[in-house]
Design a protein around this nucleic acid. Structure first.
Length: 572
RNA sequence: UGUCCCAUGGUGUAAUUGGCAACACGUCUGAUUUUGGUUCAGAAGAGUUCAGGUUCGAGCCCUGAUGGGACAACCA
C-alpha cells in the first residue's frame, strides 16, 4: 500500500468516527472488494405476520435497513406468509406501522404469497428432475422414520415413485383432491444426513384454509425452508440475514437454490446473527401472545410490553431505539442485554428533546404564611436547559403550593437537601422559603400541611441571586394545578431471565407491581394542551408522555417512560 | 454420546494482512449545577475459558480439552 493510500484510509477512518464494523459488514466489505454482486447490497426484513413486532425485531430492522443505507443499497419488506393458519391482516398493518415509526422506508413491499405460482412451478421442476416426491404417510410415520441426530433415518416407502406419478399426485394435491395431512411433497435429499433438516424435508403441505391474501386459490402451501431462499432469490437479495437458530437450515437453503439457480448465477447468502435478549423480559411471540390473550397485560401496546408499539406508547422514541440497536451491535454469541442500556438510550434522547414541566406525584400542601392571599405571580421557567430554542413558559405561583411528600422530613438526615423544620430550600423558579412549622393529621399521624415563610428578595426572575441554598424543589400551585393520573411502570418480570427456568412457567415470575396507578398527581397548567405521545420531563422525577387514553377518557393520563437517574436514593 | 455454532472487565461490542486489549453502559471519586438530572474531570474493573503448538511476537493461526448454545414441527 502506498503512503498516499494509507493517508486516505486513515482520513476515511477518521471521517467515519471510528464506527465499529461488525462481522456482517466485514463480510460485505469483502464481497464488495471482490466485485461480488456487482457492488450491490440488497437486504430484506422478512417477518411472519402472526404477531406484533418487538424490540428484538427492532434490532433486525435496524440491521437490515441500516446496512442498505450504509452501502447505498436496498431493503425490502417481505411478509413471510406461508402459513395461513397463523397469519392475519391486522399484523401486516401493525408491522408496516412499526417499521415506519422506527424511521425506515422499504424499497419494495412483497409477500411470500406473491411467489406461490413461481414456487409451485419450481416444485414441479424438482419433481421432474427426480428431486422431490409425494409422500402418503402421516406426520407421525414421517417423524418416526426421521431418526435422531445420532441415528440415520429410513426411507419412506413412497420415496421411489416415478416422476410421472409424483407429478400427477402433486397436481391432484393442488386441485384439492386430498384432505389436510393426507399427502405432502418432500425434497429427496439424504435420510442419513447428520443435519436433520436435510432428511427429505417437507416442501408442501395441504391446508384447506383461506389465506389472508390469496383467499382460497391454494390449498397447498410451501414450507419456510423451501419458500424463503427462493423468495430471496426472486427479489435479488444479496445478504439474507437471520438469527442463529437458522444456522442448521443454511445447507438446505443452499440446496434449494442449487435446484433453480444456474451455475454462475448470483444468489443470496444466508448469514446468521445472535438474537437480542433483554434482561427481565420475555421475547418470544408465543409468550407475548399469551400475556395478551390471558390478560396479564392490556394489549400488544401495553407500555410494559417489549413490543415496538408498547415501547412507543410507554414513551420511547424511535431515535432511542435505533441508537440502542447501534450500541448493542451484532455478533454471533448469545447475549443478554441489561435493560439499563435501553434506559440509558431513552434518557439520552429525551434529555435533549423533552420540555420540562412541574408535576407533583404525591402532593403535600405548603402554605407560605407571609405571602399575600389571592395573589398570583407568573414565574418564567426555561423549558429545556439543553435546548434554548424551546423557550420558556409562565408558571403561576400562589400562597399555597404542593410539594412532593418525599421532599419534607420532620427529622431529616444530614445530607437531606430538602425541606424540614427550620430549613430553607428554593422553590425552583420562585423564592427561597423557610419551614417554620408543620401540622400532623391526628388520624393518620402523617404530616398534613407545612408552614413556610418566603424571602421576597430571592425571586428568581428578578435576577436576585446572592443567596444560595442547597436544595431546590419543584412545586405546583394548589389553585392552578391540574389533576392527573400517572401510570408508573416497573419491569414486567421479577426474574432476570424468566424463561431460563425449565421447571417453572415464565408467568410465575410476573411482577405483581409492574403497574402502579397514581390518581392524585398535580401538574402545572401549561401542560393542558399536550397531545398523546408528547414527551416531557417532570423535573426531578423522570420522563413521561401523555397516554392515548387521555383522549378517550377526557382527563390527563401520563405514562412514566423511565425515571431520572438518581444518585441520592442509591446512597440511602 | 452425531453434526454445526460460540467463548474478550459486571453487561454488550471492538481490536485493519498476527505487533503494548479499546469503546459504551454500569460502578465509584471529585467539580459545576435554581433538576440529588445534565455536563465536566478522574478511578477501579479483563491480560482475552483451559492446556499445548507455530512464531521474534498469538485475543486473532493450528491441535486438544472444558463450558454454553442450536438441530429430530405437515411453525417461521
Amino acid at each position: 500500500m502506498s503512503d498516499s493510500n494509507e493517508r486516505n484510509a486513515a482520513a476515511n477512518g477518521a471521517a467515519d468516527e471510528k464506527v465499529k464494523t461488525n462481522f456482517i459488514e466485514a463480510k460485505i466489505n469483502k464481497e464488495l472488494a471482490e466485485g461480488k454482486y456487482n457492488g450491490r447490497v440488497h437486504t430484506r426484513f422478512p417477518p411472519e405476520p402472526n404477531g406484533y413486532l418487538h424490540i428484538g425485531h427492532a434490532k433486525s430492522i435496524c440491521l437490515n435497513f441500516g446496512l442498505a443505507q450504509k452501502y447505498k443499497g436496498k431493503c425490502n419488506l417481505r411478509f413471510d406468509d406461508t402459513n395461513p393458519s397463523k397469519e392475519e391482516t391486522e399484523y401486516v398493518d401493525s408491522i408496516r406501522n412499526d417499521v415506519q415509526w422506527l424511521g425506515f422506508k422499504w424499497d419494495n413491499e412483497f409477500f411470500a404469497s406473491d411467489y406461490f405460482d413461481q414456487l409451485y412451478a419450481w416444485a414441479e421442476k424438482l419433481i421432474i428432475d427426480g428431486k422431490a416426491y409425494v409422500d402418503d404417510q402421516t406426520a407421525e410415520e414421517i417423524a418416526s422414520q426421521k431418526g435422531t441426530p445420532t441415528k440415520a433415518g429410513e426411507f419412506s416407502p413412497y420415496r421411489d415413485r416415478t416422476a410421472e406419478e409424483n407429478l400427477k399426485l402433486f397436481r391432484e394435491m393442488k386441485e384439492g383432491a386430498y384432505k389436510d395431512g393426507e399427502k405432502v411433497l418432500r425434497a429427496k435429499i439424504d435420510m442419513a444426513s447428520s443435519n436433520m433438516h436435510m432428511r427429505d424435508p417437507i416442501m408442501y403441505r395441504i391446508m384447506h384454509k383461506p389465506h389472508h391474501r390469496t383467499g382460497d386459490k391454494w390449498c397447498i402451501y410451501p414450507m419456510y425452508d423451501y419458500a424463503h431462499g427462493e423468495s430471496d432469490f426472486i427479489e435479488g437479495i444479496t445478504n439474507s440475514l437471520c438469527t442463529l437458530e437458522f444456522e442448521v437450515h443454511r445447507p438446505l437453503y443452499n440446496w434449494f437454490l442449487d435446484q433453480i439457480a444456474e451455475d454462475g448465477t448470483e444468489r443470496p447468502e444466508q448469514t446468521e446473527f445472535a438474537r437480542l435478549n433483554l434482561s427481565y423480559t420475555v421475547m418470544s411471540k408465543r409468550k407475548l401472545l399469551q400475556l395478551v390473550k390471558e390478560n396479564y397485560v392490556n394489549h400488544w401496546d401495553d407500555p410494559r410490553m417489549p413490543t415496538i408499539t408498547g415501547m412507543r406508547r410507554r414513551g420511547f422514541t424511535a431515535a432511542s431505539l435505533r441508537n440502542f440497536a447501534e450500541t448493542i451491535g451484532v455478533a454471533k454469541r448469545d447475549n443478554v442485554i441489561d435493560v439499563a442500556l435501553l434506559e440509558h438510550s431513552v434518557r439520552e434522547d429525551l434529555n435533549k428533546i423533552a420540555p420540562r414541566y412541574f408535576a407533583v406525584l404525591n402532593p403535600l400542601k405548603v402554605i407560605i404564611t407571609n405571602y399575600p392571599e389571592n395573589q398570583t405571580e407568573e414565574m418564567e421557567l426555561i423549558n429545556n436547559p439543553e435546548d434554548e430554542t424551546q423557550g420558556s413558559r409562565k408558571v403561576p405561583f400562589t400562597r399555597e403550593v404542593f410539594i412532593e411528600k418525599d421532599d419534607f422530613m420532620i427529622d431529616p438526615p444530614r445530607k437531606f437537601f430538602r425541606l424540614g423544620p427550620g430549613r430553607e430550600v428554593r422553590l425552583k423558579g420562585a423564592y427561597i422559603v423557610k419551614c417554620e412549622d408543620y401540622k400532623i393529621n391526628e388520624a393518620t399521624g402523617e404530616v398534613e400541611e407545612v408552614y413556610c415563610t418566603y424571602d421576597p428578595e430571592t425571586q428568581s426572575n428578578t435576577g436576585q441571586g446572592s443567596r444560595k441554598v442547597k436544595g431546590t424543589l419543584h412545586w405546583v400551585s394548589c389553585e392552578h394545578g391540574l389533576d392527573a393520573e400517572v401510570r408508573i411502570y416497573d419491569r414486567l418480570f421479577m426474574d432476570e431471565d424468566p424463561d431460563g427456568h425449565p421447571d417453572k412457567d415464565f408467568k410465575e415470575f410476573l411482577n405483581p407491581d409492574s403497574l402502579q396507578i397514581n390518581t392524585q398527581a398535580k401538574v402545572e397548567p401549561a401542560i393542558q394542551n399536550a397531545k398523546p405521545f408528547d414527551h416531557f420531563q417532570f423535573q426531578r422525577i423522570g420522563y413521561f408522555n401523555l397516554d392515548l387514553d387521555t383522549v378517550k377518557e377526557k382527563r390527563l393520563i401520563f405514562n412514566r417512560t423511565v425515571p431520572l437517574r438518581d444518585s441520592w436514593s442509591k446512597k440511602k
